[in-house]
Design a protein around this nucleic acid. Structure first.
Lengths: 162, 162
DNA sequence: GTAATGGTTAGTGCTACGCAAACCATTTAT
DNA sequence: ATAAATGGTTTGCGTAGCACTAACCATTAC
């Protein structure tokens, strides 16, 4: 149990900066996305579906960390434009399997494209290589231990206040 | 116009994932932060002030990408707990120079500490090295070309739809 | 002087949510 | 077969975080 903090000299958390940058981008993105009939949250859903694959609605709600009833509305928006598809699961016909359609990934790609200028403005100081690294880290984190929390973890010794 | 896409094979934008992960962390963070008398947006403000240094209230509003009148309330919260200080600028006594106090950076550090478990849960698949890289990229982007947009940029050729 | 600027306060309204209730269709348990 | 649980849908209510406006100081610039 005597784990001496060797390299833990930088306890900075990414959360706040993540939040901050997300906002900076989102604010600008709204305007760019509007003509495409999308809103930031649609982008999130589409991206999650693309990067993480289709799943049940409930699973999607968990992934998006949002209430199931609101996911319904969100999917209604997307389905109305044929960007996603709800198919009844063959094994359990109560379940809806949500999946990105061809049109969906196309629209998503277009939107990402349209957002180039926005990200240039906000992530301007990062070069191509860095942005790619950033995306890769984010994608990895987002696709990570999503399904449910392995009740383990959380045994970090925390820190003694200065 | 015959620009053949050599390396631009991955036009993925980070915005959506940034947003998504920020949300995942924020949801969990609220509970952890509450006992410390902080809310996510306070964390953002404190972090921005620490990483970017003190500045006028208006400049802070620009940095936070939020309306000046709401910044007032945000700072009222923080000042009430002596986490930030509003001092009148000597050169222009209309201006308030906002700065993090000792108590402020202490509280921030504590909060970041308390958020260790939260980030472990959300960024669990990233190892120490990767998280450090992530934080560094975010910090760099956030501290980057913040003040105002150099009207340049935005000359990306965008993309031709598939 | 008058006008513009930085900040404050109060008030209005919107949007994205969370949350609860009632409701199907389906599956599982008894 | 009947009952209970589950996945999804709809409706409706409440709240938080904002943007936005207008009116108001104090200070500075014209």
């Amino acid at each position: 149990m005597a784990d001496l903090p060797l390299v833990d000299a930088t306890p900075h958390r990414a959360g706040a900066l993540l939040d901050h940058l997300a906002r900076r981008i989102r604010m600008r993105a709204e305007g760019v996305l509007a003509p495409l009939g999308l809103r930031p949250r649609h982008m999130i859903a589409l991206t999650v579906l693309r990067d993480g694959g289709g799943c049940s609605q409930q699973a999607l709600a968990t992934r998006l960390e949002m209430d199931g009833t609101n996911v319904v509305g969100l999917l209604n928006d997307l389905e109305k434009e044929r960007l996603v598809e709800r198919r009844r699961s063959p094994e359990d016909r109560r379940r809806h399997v949500v999946e990105l359609t061809g049109a969906g990934s196309e629209r998503l790609a277009n939107a990402e494209c349209a957002l180039a200028a926005v990200e240039n403005e906000v992530l301007g100081v990062l070069d191509e290589q860095q942005r790619e690294t950033l995306y890769e880290l984010l994608r990895q984190a987002a696709s990570g231990a999503v399904p449910s929390c392995t009740e383990a973890a959380c045994d970090e010794p925390a820190c003694d206040e200065p």
